[in-house]
Design a protein around this nucleic acid. Sequence first.
RNA 1: GGGCCCAUGGUCUAGCGGCUAUGACGUUUCCUUCACAGGGAGAAGGUCCCCAGUUCAAUUCUGGGUGGGCCCACCA
Length: 812
Amino acid sequence: MEKQYNAKESEEKWMEFWEKENIYKFDANSKSEIYSIDTPPPTVSGKMHLGHSFSYSQQDFIARFQRMSGKNVFYPFGTDANGLATERMIEKMKNVKGQFMKRSDFVELCLKTLEEIRADFVYDWKRIGISADFNIFYTTIDRHSQKISQKSFLQLYKMGRIYKKKAPFIWCPECQTAIAQVEMKDSERQSNLVYMKFDTTLNEQITIATTRPELLPSCVAIHINPDDKRYKKFIGAKAIIPFLNREVKITANKDVDMEFGSGIVYHCTFGDMDDVRWMEEYNIEPIEILNKNGTLNEKAGRFKGLYVKEARKAVIKALEEEKRIAKTESIKHVVNVHERCDTDIEILTTEQWFIKYLDLKDDFIKFGRKIKWYPEHMRIRYENWIHGLKWDCNISRQRHFGIPIPLWYCKKCSEIILAEEKQLPVDPLTDKPLSNCKCSSNEFIAEKDVLDTWATSSLTPDIAIELFNDKEQKKLFPMSLRPQAHDIITFWLFNTVVKSYFHHKNIPWKEVMISGWALDPHGKKMSKSKGNVIEPREMISKYSADALRFWAAGSRLGDDLPFQEKDLVTGQKFTTKIWNASKFAFMHLSDYNKDDKENKKEKQKEKPKKIELMDRWILSKISRLAKECTENLMNYEYSHTKLATETFFWHTFCDNYLEIIKDRLYNSEKRGISPKISAQYGLYHSLLTIIKLMAPITPFITEELYQLYYKKHEKIKSIHIADWPSISLIDENAEKVGDFFVHILQQVRKVKSESNMSLKKPIKKITAKGRIPKENFEEIKEDLIATTNAEEIVFEQLDEKSDKEYDAIVEM
RNA sequence: GGGCCCAUGGUCUAGCGGCUAUGACGUUUCCUUCACAGGGAGAAGGUCCCCAGUUCAAUUCUGGGUGGGCCCACCA
C-alpha cells in the first residue's frame, strides 16, 4: 500500500473500472425492486458548472445508497441538446447562420456536431462519480426523442388540447421567434423617461411620460385614473397623436399608477402584456407597427424602416422640433430581455401553437400533492406557480433547429393533415403525409414551426422508459424519483407533471428531491457576468472529486450553500485520514483469517469465540450509527449521514478505538492470541462499515480501500454493489463500560496535556471512578492500562449521591 | 407588491421544549520516531438577529419586526 493516496490516479482508475465492469448497469430482468431516477439532462451548450456538481452529487448519494440497499437502480443519463441554446452554440462553433441554411442541412450539422462534443461533455459527469447507467442514454433531439415528442403532440392534438391561435405574444426580434415566459430575464438599465406633450380636443395639452416614445405611432388610447383629480376632466375627450394627427380616446382606467411619471399612460401596441389585456377589456383595435425583425413598418409613417432604437432617437428628435418635449428624466428601470441573447423583447401578434391547460389548474395541484416532496416546502413553489398562470402554454418556435411540429396543411382546402404515428419522427419540410387529404388533394404545405424545448424535456420519463420493451416499461412507471434544483420547479418539473397528466393519467414520479444552489463565497448567485464562477474541473484537479462531493454533502437538502475553497480541504483531509487509518488496519489484518483456523468450519468463520468488551463497544456503537445513517438516507438527509459518519470515524474510531486496540494488536505474545483476534474482528467490521457508509458520498476512496483489502474476503466486485451495512450488534452494557473507558482516557489525556507532558509518558497510578460493575472493570483493565500507559489503575465505585458519572485521579 | 427559505463563536455548519449548544476552518499552548505534522491532546472565542407571547422551562413553539437569499408579478 502506497504511503500516500493519489486521488487523481485513483479516481480516474475507478471511473474506468466502473464503466468497463458495468457496475451501474440496470438489469431489466432482475426481480429486485426497481428504483428509477429521472435525472435532469444537462444542456450541452457549456461545461458543467459548480451548481451541477452540487445537485448531481446529492442525487448520486441517494442512487448509490439505494443500489447498495439492494434496489435495482434505473438511472439513465440524457443531455438536453434541443432548442435555441444549442442552436446558438453550433452557429458559433461552426461559424454559420441557421436561418440562411436549409433546415435539414442545419439540423444535420447540429446532430453531427453534438456527436463530436458529447463524450467530452458527459465526461464531467463521469468524473465526479455519477453512478448513472451511461448506456441508457438519450439526447432530447435524437430520433427516439423526436418520435416521442411528436407522438405527444399528436395525442394532445387528438385530445383537443392543442390549438393554433393568432395572438400577441412575447417575441425576440434577434432570434425571430416567440419565446416563453420563463425564457425572459430582467435587465436593469439606465433609460430616459421622456415627457411628451399631446394636444387634446379640450384645447389643453396633456403630458405623458414614457421610456418608449418610438411606439407613439401605435398609440391607441390614453388612460387616466378616474380618481386622479388633476386629469379627471380629460376623460371622454380625445388626444391627438403628433405627426399622424390621429385622434385617440382618453379613457378612465383604475390600473393607472398616478405616482409614476406624469400619471398618464399612453396605450400602445404593445408596450407590455398590460397593453394586450387592456386592448381586450376596452375592445380597442391594435395598430401594429413592428416587423418580426424589430423594424417599424409603414403604419409608423415617416419612421418606417427604422430599428426600434433608431426610431426612438428619431421620434425624440422630431418631438423636440415640434417643442413637444416637456422634460427628460434619467431613470433606472428593469426591462425584459431574452435570456439567450440579451435582446429587449417585444410583443408581436403571430400565429402560435398552444396547449390548452388553464382549466386544469386544480388537477395539477392535486397531482402535485400526490407526489412526496423533499423538502416538503418546495411544493408551495409549485402551487404558487400554478396559481399565477395566466396563459396557455405556447409550444411553437420559429426556428430551424428543433423537433418539427408533425403536420401539413392541404394546399387546396387548408385542412390540417397530421402525421401518422408509424411514420414518426417526421419532418414535414422533407416528408409527405401517408395519405391524401379528404378533398383528395395530394399537395401539401408543411408546417414550418418547431416545438419548444420544454415540449420535449417534459417527456424525459417517457424518453428513458421507452428505450425498453412494453413489459419492462410497465415496471418502470411511475418513476421513483425526480431529483433537480429548485430553480426549475416552475417549468421542467411542472411541465413534466402536465404531460404525465395527459398521457398517463398519473404522476410521473413518486418522490422529488429538490437541491439548493451552490453560491459564491458571499452567498450570491454565481454568474458569468459577475465573474464569480467556480470551475468544478479546476477544483477536481486541485483537490479531488471526492472532496467536491464531500462538500456537496455538507448542507441539508434544499439549502443553498456558499462555496468556499477551504471547505474542499476538509474533504481532502478526510480522504487522507481514512487512507492512513486503513493502512494501519490492513497491516494488522493481513494475518487475520490465517490465525483463525479453529473457527473456519463455521459459517461465520472469522468470528472469534470471545469478543473483548471494547470490541463489543465499537461494534455496538457502529450498529447504532449504521441504523441512524440508513434512516437518514431514506429521508434524503445525506448531510446527517456524512456528519455522523465523519465524526464517528475521526473521533470514536481513530482517536479512541484504534489507540485502545494497538496493544492487543502489537503485543499478542504478551496479551494472547485470542484478544488479538477479537481486536481484528472489531477492526475489520467497524472499518468496513465506515467505508460502506461513506461509499455513496466519497465513492472513489472507498472503492480504492475496498479493492485493496476487503474485496478478497467479501468477494463482491465493487463496494458500490456490496450490501448496505445492516450490522446489529447492540450491547448496551458494553457501550456503558466503553464510554466509561473513554472518559477516563480523556481525563488522563487532559491532565497530561495541561502539564505539557507527552501522551506516551508513563504515569504511576490512576484511580478511576465510575458506575460500572467491578467485574466489567476487570475486563477492560488491561486495555486501559496499555492505552493510558499507567503502572497501576484502581477502580472505585461512585455512589448514587455523587453528581459525577465518571472521575479520575491521576498520580504522576 | 405576492410567496418561500434562512438567521447559531471571526467564517461555514449540526441540532433540539430542559444537557456545559455540534462539528469543521481559523486563532493559540503543548505533545509526537511505532497509520497519519494534511497528525494528536488541550485552551480561548457565543446575549443561538431583535421584541412580545405560550410554558415550571424557549436557541428550539407562536405572533410581530429587522436583515439576507431565491422565485413570481409589476416596471406606461
